[in-house]
C-alpha cells in the first residue's frame, strides 16, 4: 500500500512530492513538473515550469506547443527542489528518457523509473541502475511470457524480410510508434537494400535525434513525389494509425505491399494476428520480465511500487520471491492500455 506519509504519493494529477513541491509526469497542468520522457502519456503541455533532460525538452517542443520554461540538468547533476535533492539518470527508453532520484533531508531515497529498458540501444543514453530505498518501477511487460531476444537478430530478420519483399517487387511498411521506436528501427535498417521513407509525423522527432548526434541512415519523405522511388523496393516507417489507409496504398508496388508491426506485444501470437499485419517483430522499448526483476535487485530497494502495466502480478511476485515490500501505484492508464506501445495494434480495432 502507498502510505500517506510517503515522500511521493499518487494523486489525481500524477505523482506528487510535497517535500519538493513538484509533480513527476503529471497528466494535468501543474506549477512544477519533472518529466521523465516526451511520450504523450508522460509529458503534458501547459505546466508552469519543467525539469527534464535537454533531449526530452527538445523532443517535447518538437511534438507539442505549450511547453514553457524548462530547466535541463545534466544526468546525475543534483538540483535542490524544496526540501529535496533531485537528479535525473538515463532510463534507456527513448532519447532523453530519465529516471528521477529524489533524496529528502531525512528518510529513504526514492527513484521513479518512468519507462525504461535495459537492452543496448544506439539511439538513446544507456540505462543505469540507481541505488535507492524505494523504487517506483513501470511494469508494461511485467509477466514472464515477455522476454526479449537478441536485438541484432531481430534486425537481421527485419532486413532479410525487407530484402525478400524488395526482390518480389513488394513495398515494405513498418508500423512503429513515432517517437523512439521509429528511430530505433531506422538505426537498425540496412540502407543498402533500398530507399527508406518516413511519414510526416516522424520527421520532427527524427530531426531532434539527428541534431542530438544519433547516427541514422538517409531517409526521404514518404509522400506522393517520392512514391515512385519507394514503390516495390522501399521501406516506409509510419505510425500504426497509418495502417490500412488510402495514404499507405499509394506506395503499393507491383508485387503489393507487406506490413509489419514492431512491438513487444508481438511476442504473443494472438497480438500478431490482431491487426492482420503480415509480420510481427518483437522489439520493445520497455524492460522485459528479466529486466524488471534484475533492476529491482540492482537498485537494492527494499520497497517497490509497481505501476503502468501488469502491476499486481509483478508486485505479488516480487513480494513472494524477492522478499521486498511492494505496493501498486494507480495510474490514469489502466491495465495494458499503454498507448506508447500501440497495444491495440495497427488499425486500432475496438
Amino acid at each position: 500500500m502507498p502510505v500517506k506519509t510517503d515522500l511521493i504519493v499518487p494523486t489525481d494529477r500524477g505523482l506528487w512530492c510535497e517535500a519538493g513541491g513538484f509533480y513527476i509526469d503529471p497528466w494535468r497542468p501543474v506549477d512544477l513538473a519533472v518529466v521523465t520522457h516526451a511520450h504523450a502519456d508522460h509529458a503534458t503541455p501547459g505546466c508552469g515550469r519543467y525539469i527534464a533532460s535537454a533531449n526530452t525538452a527538445a523532443l517535447m517542443r518538437s511534438r507539442m506547443s505549450g511547453i514553457g520554461e524548462a530547466h535541463t540538468p545534466a544526468f546525475g547533476e543534483p538540483l535542490r527542489l524544496g526540501a529535496t535533492t533531485v537528479s535525473l539518470h538515463p532510463a534507456g527508453h527513448v532519447l532523453g528518457s530519465s529516471q528521477v532520484r529524489v533524496v529528502p533531508e531525512e528518510g529513504p531515497t526514492w527513484v521513479v523509473t518512468g519507462d525504461y529498458k535495459v537492452e543496448p540501444d544506439p539511439t538513446c543514453e544507456p540505462f543505469e541502475p540507481v541505488a535507492c530505498d524505494v523504487l517506483l518501477t513501470e511494469s508494461t511487460f511485467g509477466l514472464p511470457i515477455y522476454r526479449w531476444g537478441d536485438t541484432l537478430a531481430v534486425f537481421d530478420d527485419l532486413n532479410a524480410w525487407w530484402r525478400s519483399n524488395a526482390d518480389a517487387g513488394r513495398t515494405t511498411v513498418v508500423l512503429a510508434y513515432a517517437l523512439g521506436k521509429a528511430q530505433r528501427v531506422l538505426a537498425g535498417l540496412d540502407a543498402s537494400i533500398g530507399p527508406i521513407g518516413l511519414r510526416g509525423a516522424l520527421h520532427g522527432p527524427t530531426g531532434v535525434y539527428q541534431e542530438a548526434g544519433i547516427v541514422l541512415p538517409d531517409w526521404i519523405h514518404a509522400n506522393a513525389t517520392n512514391a515512385p522511388e519507394l514503390k516495390g523496393r522501399g521501406l516506409i516507417v509510419c505510425p500504426p494509425s497509418a495502417s490500412g489507409t488510402a495514404w499507405i496504398r499509394k506506395f503499393r508496388g507491383k508485387g503489393g505491399i507487406r506490413t509489419a508491426f514492431v512491438s513487444g506485444w508481438m511476442r504473443v501470437r494472438g497480438r500478431r494476428r490482431w491487426g492482420s499485419v503480415d509480420r510481427g517483430f518483437v522489439l520493445s522499448d520497455h524492460a522485459d520480465w528479466d529486466g524488471l526483476i534484475d533492476t529491482v535487485r540492482r537498485t537494492g530497494a527494499k520497497r517497490v511500487g509497481v505501476t503502468h502495466g501488469s502491476s499486481e502480478a509483478l508486485a505479488r511476485y516480487l513480494a513472494e520471491r524477492e522478499g521486498v515490500e511492494t505496493f501498486v501505484v494507480p495510474t490514469r492508464y489502466r491495465g495494458e492500455g499503454d498507448e506508447q506501445d500501440g497495444v491495440q495494434g495497427p488499425g486500432g480495432a475496438a
Binding site: L143, P144, I145, V268, R269, G270, S310, A313, Y317, R321
Partner: peptide
Amino acid sequence: PEWLLAECHAAV
C-alpha cells in the same frame, strides 16, 4: 508459481 502461470495463460 502456479498463480503466475494462470495470469500468463489469461494474457496469452
